[in-house]
Design a protein around this nucleic acid. Structure first.
Length: 299
DNA sequence: CGTGGGCCTGTCTA
DNA sequence: ATAGACAGGCCCA
């Protein structure tokens, strides 16, 4: 992965011998709590507070070791192979070319789950706001590099919250879903990690049993934290991508409904999801992320 | 079993 | 300024 290590021991500098585009990876909407100060990104992941930056193919980081960084940014995945696998048409080819090096982050499943319950019907700045409020109220305070951070609250901590307290974090109607799901994870026999072993459809069905988790949230959790690269979340942006660039690959009737109706029905979600997975294959989730980001930036 | 309407509230635009 | 629309959907009737 890296060819050489040099420099001051506290700040390892690694020449990464694999395509990696840090800024896009952290900006493309998969994670919400990273913060850029000058050219350093500061973040908390699984109770580790660290910073990372990229200068060309030189990646520097502090307060964390290389194996963690490599795993977190899934730099062990062969992006050339993935790219070749999803490179099915001219449109995605442009997205791949523009943002090559965008990586799917391996998030903590618990944090990912709560984050995406909160993400429903909200804009990214608002999601960030909610999650930071929750971390500040229920997480642990840490300090690093002269700055203050809060870890994402553990399930036991959040289980002690009340619906009112969560609403004060700006969650609105999502508060009761977060609380109910948290309690099921703490008390009930629901084990998030065990979903890794299940095939995609079964893991998805299991997630959708939890309060506040529909098909879209389940797909996000599976893709971003449980290693299901074939998951293909369909949000308003992906719907736009499909309408604008893949309409000719859909049934005319479906295309007609999508253009006339605003919101996506459960059935139409499933159809778009199935389209994405069958069209792009086992790495459909990577295709989704490149297309999503490309469409958002193009506005 | 498929569909339509309501929903908390932070942000952004006019 | 202040209202109004919209936001990475989910649940229930």
């Amino acid at each position: 992965m890296f060819l050489q290590q040099a420099g001051f021991w506290r700040t390892p500098k690694l020449i990464v011998d694999a395509p990696f585009y840090l800024d896009v990876t952290l900006c493309c909407g998969q994670v919400f709590r990273w913060e850029k100060v000058d050219d350093w990104w500061f973040g908390v992941a699984s109770d580790k507070t660290f910073k990372v930056r990229q200068l060309g193919n030189l990646v520097e980081f502090e307060n964390v070791d290389w194996p963690f960084v490599e795993n977190y940014f899934s730099l062990d995945m062969d992006l050339q192979k993935i790219s070749a696998s999803i490179n099915r048409d001219l449109h995605i080819r442009k997205a791949l070319k523009e943002y090559f090096g965008l990586r799917l982050i391996r998030q903590d499943p618990w944090e990912c789950l709560i984050s995406y319950i909160c993400a429903t019907y909200k804009s990214i700045p608002a999601i960030r706001h909610m999650l930071n409020n929750m971390a500040q109220k229920f997480g642990e305070k840490t300090s690093f590099d002269g700055r203050t951070f809060y870890t994402f609250p553990k399930p036991e901590m959040l289980a002690r919250a009340t619906e009112q307290k969560l609403k004060e974090c700006g969650l609105g109607y999502r508060a009761k879903y977060v609380l109910a799901t948290t309690k099921q994870l703490c008390e009930g026999g629901f084990n998030l990690e065990s979903l890794r072993k299940l095939p995609y459809p079964e893991a998805k069905a299991a997630l959708m049993e939890l309060p506040g988790i529909g098909a879209k949230v389940a797909d996000c959790v599976l893709l971003f934290s449980l290693g299901k690269t074939e998951a293909f979340p369909v949000d308003v942006w992906v719907k736009r991508v499909i309408l604008n660039h893949y309409g000719d690959k859909l049934a005319p009737e479906l295309l007609q409904r999508l253009t006339t109706r605003g919101s996506l029905s459960n059935v139409d979600y499933r159809r778009l999801n199935e389209f994405g997975r069958s069209y792009f294959g086992e790495y459909a989730g990577y295709a989704q992320e490149y297309l999503y980001h490309y469409e958002r930036i193009a506005i």
